[in-house]
Design a binder for these strands. Structure first.
Lengths: 293, 293
DNA sequence: ATGGCCGATCAGAGATACTGATACACGTGG
DNA sequence: CCACGTGTATCAGTATCTCTGATCGGCCAT
């Protein structure tokens, strides 16, 4: 199970095509076909059904493992490189959209201590933050998400990365101000909202899939899916009645109503992610953020 | 970073010798030397200091990743095989010593439902249980350990394995009955015991390293190390005054005294580990165990 | 029916990964 | 301090592997 073969397999499964995967990987279609054949004969079972190209059950099992394995290999390489290379001159940060907001004050503090620091901040999806920090593309990452009050975030791929909790906030249901449930003092449980019109904004707010898992319910169907990272757009959508979403209280503006979410008991949490820190500047940011709790 | 190279690297680091690793792996010394050279030139840094053979800091980083990566590769292979192969006729179980005790009643129940089931039980160290279940050597594993009351066990290598809590018990300090602290109604915190004579039995009782981490203390030095899995021997050692150890209450016999451990707040927990279960018998054991909570 | 698309297969060239032999370096014991 | 022995590095050669490019064959859409 050569990592090259795994990478090819993942790419083929992702593309749904041998030829497309070949192009993306810079191989010939022939090579890709041989890669998959090698894997299949090694494991003794078909991994993909052809035409159309779909993973078999065995292929699905392998896919579950292949991604994390490849990520971990990158993380290993990055970790080794970090112990050798001298610390980078620019501080490379990544954050998921709602986590980025915790950064400004902490960064200001660091700027005072290390005035010459060049900084780069990338806002992207949670998985990309985790993958990027693991692979060494980013020095530090900030990821937000929901969790039970006592548990840390469940960052499946974050093995071998250090995490520190940097902030938490209560979760609220964001509603149009005119919504009948938007009365002051009102509290809600997810059960009350099983049949509501939901906006699923998985890169920005609490993903509906996560809420379903936490509620143990199979309801909560999205009426509207927002694939974007812009908070203002989401709030506008909510405000104009396209649906509701679960957000940390501090993310809301006055033009949408916030009703605290009581059950299941969940909080919004922001965590700092990093590998081994040899860079004093990065370490300063890390401690500045942790202290700000 | 071919897995073969990683395996060689791990073996060399473990043996402390190229030639010994070569023999263990069935290669020539020349091949091993070339493997390491390839890895080092790929990563652009020395990984081992030679003569004596010791990992460099970069090598240590890589070692931290290499083991889990290789384990995960095995787990992937095992997971794929499981979806293809028909369920094994004998139920292969593994358990850490103190976890094995939860098995008997559950197994009896299964024997009633599936009378023809052949069973094999291996008792071994916690890590070996986790590795064996991941690699598919065992169908089910039971691991015990200590954790805070709300958290699950911290099974670092158990990625992609399902875990279910099957039992918990209060932790007590086991002392000779004649010990001055062994008064009825007495309660203890780890801080009180910083300077006590400890028996470290990492494969059997709560490892001192774990207790140190939980207490946040650097005290707790072992006066006696017991590398073994036999509970009776450990209790005898404790009873005859060689030192004390932290154990689940239910493990003790009347010839040693038990004083509840109050701080840090920890419990003894037993968890069931398994991959994807296709085997109905294994599933029966799994549910029988979970229900027994 | 037929053309286009896509995956499988095949043969051959280049790269790789071993072995066995040998050179070299370090730590040790005299 | 030198010589020896143990243990790693290097080298050359061969067997194997892994690509490419060409070709075949099957399925679907027109």
């Amino acid at each position: 199970m050569d990592p090259h073969l795994l990478r090819t397999f993942v790419t083929v499964a992702d593309c749904g095509s041998f030829s497309a995967a070949a192009e993306r990987l810079g191989y010939t279609q022939s090579a890709v076909s041989q890669h998959i054949a090698t894997l299949e004969s090694d494991l003794g079972t078909p991994l993909l059904r052809r035409r159309p190209v779909v993973p078999t059950p065995a292929g699905e099992r392998l896919l579950e493992h292949a991604g994390p394995i490849l990520l971990r290999l990158d993380a290993a390489r990055a970790d080794v490189r970090r112990t050798v290379a001298d610390p980078p001159s620019t501080l490379t940060l990544a954050a998921s959209p709602l986590a980025a907001r915790s950064l400004a004050t902490a960064l200001a503090e660091v700027r005072r201590t290390y005035p010459g620091t060049e900084t780069s901040l990338t806002v992207c999806g949670r998985d990309q933050v985790v993958a990027g920090v693991a692979a060494g593309t980013f020095t530090l990452g900030l990821v937000d998400g929901i969790a039970t009050p006592t548990d840390p975030l469940n960052l499946t791929n974050a093995v071998q990365l250090r995490t520190t909790s940097v902030a938490h906030d209560t979760l609220v249901v964001a509603l149009p101000t005119t919504h009948p449930l938007a009365r002051p003092g009102r509290r809600l449980s997810l059960g009350d909202l099983a049949d509501a019109r939901w906006i699923d904004a998985p890169d920005l707010a609490a993903p509906l899939a996560t809420l379903r898992a936490a509620a143990g319910s199979n309801a909560l169907r999205p009426a509207f899916t927002y694939n974007g990272t812009d908070l203002h757009t989401l709030l506008t959508l909510i405000g104009s009645g396209h649906g509701l979403a679960v957000l940390p209280r501090s993310a809301l503006t006055p033009d949408v109503a916030a009703v605290p979410l009581t059950t299941p008991r969940l909080v919004h949490r922001t965590e700092l992610l990093h590998g081994h820190l040899s860079d004093p500047t990065a370490e300063a940011v890390a401690t500045a953020l942790s202290d700000h709790e």
